[in-house]
Design a protein around this nucleic acid. Structure first.
Lengths: 185, 185
DNA sequence: AAATTACAGAACATAGTGTTCTTTATCATA
DNA sequence: TATGATAAAGAACACTATGTTCTGTAATTT
């Protein structure tokens, strides 16, 4: 990939990032992104088909970076009990999300919230399924998985709105306390 | 209020309702609403400032109808235990939402999802707070309330996506099973 | 029956989107 | 370092959607 392309791509991502600190995605125009990135109009459309396309690619980059590159390198904790392992990994996710806070603020609400949920489910699916045995067996599995993932996603949104005043570990602990059910088999 | 106004307002709501069965809100244009409602352009803007304004008013109407008119008329169950009472009321909400399914499909995801959450929180706040004693006290109260309300909201979305194949009672029971925590005081 | 009010329809200004073109600058590489 | 290839700048453009304004007509209220 040409240096110029990389530079432009970075400039566009960075511009959107900056703008997202001021206003929500829907209220940002392509022109503003172009001005902020200091590039030509045709250049933008040479890189991305639409504004939505840009958001999707940027989010994919961020989430892929977190879920596929950062998290797997961290200490494996498969020896732990399912619950403790889950809490640890959720804490790690929150830690990495905090690093990208400027990017994520105002993103998680919209369409890319679904994208986050998708990555989250993919990454945690096996853990959630292992943890599933702690829940009553008459709950449909897809409901359980959706509930666990979506609840965590909502916890993240709450945390972002609170300006991440609590530590990642705290939030992970709150979440675990909430989903630690009474009906153990 | 003039009969003509009421008629037009109804026609616009109905038009949006119909269109929402085919596509998501963001993809619907004002022109399509106008054509579907068979009214003049100026008439639309005499009633609503913007398309978002229309959505907001329509959702407010629906949710107000459910939360302020229908639900309070139903059998009071204050004598029940907090948990059973909550499950019953959640079931009622789901029942009334099902009646408006055509309207709500594709709505709850967007901005009006927040509106739903607002009504939900308002209606259930005292119940949730009463139920709060079942949770560990070291969880921040606003986290707890947000988690309970948002989780329920997510359960509704799941249910809508599943084309409401499960009964309201079932979904309410699933939800209650998920939030029935282990850590009773 | 008269005054008021809502509606239809058309025309308009405005703003944002996405495309196309030419010229200029930068890159890879032989 | 000369050269062919490629990316970017910038302007012009067509197109779509939004929201406003106006006039004449029809319905409603009193």
């Amino acid at each position: 990939m040409d240096r110029r392309q990389q530079k432009t791509r970075k400039a566009i991502f960075s511009a959107l990032s900056n703008l997202l600190e001021q206003k929500r995605f829907e209220c940002i125009t392509v022109q503003e992104i172009i001005d902020e990135a200091d590039i030509g109009r045709s250049t933008f459309y040479a890189h991305f088909e639409t504004k939505d396309d840009l958001l999707k690619e940027m989010c994919t980059d961020i989430f892929h970076h977190i879920f596929a590159e950062r998290l797997p390198q961290e200490a494996d904790s498969d020896h732990m009990e399912g619950s403790a392992n889950l809490e640890l990994k959720l804490g790690h996710i929150l830690y990495h999300l905090k690093e990208n806070k400027c990017n994520l603020k105002g993103i998680l609400e919209g369409e890319s919230g679904e994208l986050f949920l998708y990555f989250l489910k993919g990454y945690l699916c096996d853990l959630f399924i292992r943890y599933k045995d702690d829940f009553p067996c008459d709950i449909p599995e897809d409901f359980l998985l959706h509930h666990l993932a979506a609840s965590f996603s909502e916890a993240v949104k709450w945390w972002m709105r609170e300006d991440t005043r609590h530590s990642p570990e705290e939030v992970a602990a709150y979440y675990m306390a909430m989903i630690r059910t009474q009906n153990r088999k």
